[in-house]
Each structure stands twice: as C-alpha cells, then as structure tokens.
Amino acid sequence: MMSKILSNRANWAWPYAIVLLVFVVMPLVMIVYYSFQDAEGQWSLHNFHKFFLSTDSVNTLIYSIGIAMITTILCILLGYPAAYFMSKKEYRLPKVMAALFILPMWINVLLRTLATVALFDFAHLPLGEGALIFGMVYNFLPFMVYPIYNTMLKMDGSLIEAAQDLGASPRKVFTEVFLPLSMPGVYSGIVMVFMPTISTFALAELLTMNNVKLFGTLIQENINAGLLGYGAALSLIILILIGLTSFFDNEE
C-alpha cells in the first residue's frame, strides 16, 4: 500500500502542496478576508477608506516607495559595474569577488544590521535616513549583482564579436548590444531588490532609532495594536503594488 503510493512520483508533491496551502494560501485568504471586515465583523470597504483618508498613512506609503526606489537605483548603479567586472574573464577577479559578495550573506540580516549600527556609532555618523539607505543598499546589493552577473555570464560572446565585426567601436558595442542584452538581468534585479525593500521595517527601526517610519512599520504597528482588519488592508495594498512590479520581470 505504502510502496504503491510512493512509487507514483506525483504523490511526492503532496507534502509540499499541504505546506504551501497552510503557510501561503491560507494567510493570503485571511489577509483578504480581514481587510474587508470592519470592527463589527461586517463586510465593508471601511479599512481602505480609512487608509486613503489618512494623509499620514498615504505619505508613509509614498515615502516607502521613494526609499525603495532610491535603494534600487543605487543598487543598479553599484551592482551593474560590479557584475560587469566579475563576468569579464580577463580581470582575473571573478572568483574572489563573487566570494566577497556572497560572504556577508552568510550572516543573519539582523546581525549585519546591528553591526552597521555599531559601525555608524564608531564612525560618529548619525543614524537616520542616510544610514537606512546605506543599510538597505548594503543588504540588497547581492540580489542585484547576481541576476545581472548571471545574464552577462550566459551572454553569447559571438554577439559581441558580431557587433565589432559590423563596425561597432567598444563604446557602441556596449550601448547597442551589451547593455540591451543584459537588461533581463537588471529587470530581475529590480524585482529582487524593490519588492523586499518596500516592505522593510526591522532595518528602519534599527538604523533610524525608530525615527523614520516605513510602510512595513505601519503595518506592524497596526497589527500589534490589535487593528487586524486595517493591518490586513495595508498588507493587501502592498501586495498589489509588489504584484505590479513583478510584471517588470515578465516583460520579455
């Protein structure tokens, strides 16, 4: 009996399906359910109404998106050249660099952030917005570098040669062929960085001494304060936003 069940490979997927159902699908359903409930347990749009009427909350959302965008742009600006040099064999750096980029990832994100706080303290730099952006870029840079690096590594070298052959100077080879062909990696990087940064809250608390409020913080505060419905509505809003950005990745 048991062996019969095990022999059908399709059955092996069941444990995963159950885990996904309990830990992904059910929470999502609950978020949707609670966000459309008012305090009396009636179906309503009250929570969404409340959000759009609260200038504070809307501002926090816009501010969070701004911070996430700045982080993403900085990650692209720093990560793209890094990936470029790592993908070039002639620089003989790649292995070392790849290891150095992945090294901080061995350490827990909170420990890393606490260490950042200590570092700022040591250097007598003020915590706040600047520290927050530094911390986010530092944490999420590898997520930008790796997709770009992978795309560059897999790029067909003969395309670069074809461009040279057709008369493209090194600068033109980059702008006309290399850059467009590496864009899929950049899109993946954007999704990998933008999505998690927009809902960050622990980093914000630690790096700004709770002075800067991000959207993630807002959700956490409301849920902690027992406003389950409102918190769920905020979560749904952020989920939809993240869902929209992931269209970036499917563009091609």
């Binding site: 067909d156 003969s158 395309l159 040669e161 074809a162 461009a163 040279q164 052959d165 057709l166 008369g167 493209a168 100077s169 033109k172 062929v177 467009p180 062909l181």
Partner: peptide, 18 residues
Amino acid sequence: PYQRPVNTVFQRYALFPH
C-alpha cells in the same frame, strides 16, 4: 575588427536577439 573592411558570417549566426 571594427576598423577592418571585412565582415563575418558566424557559425552559429550570432544574430542580435533584441
């Protein structure tokens, strides 16, 4: 290569996919 008046047809064509 980009200053030579020769052009190449590559083995795997190397057409620009974008």
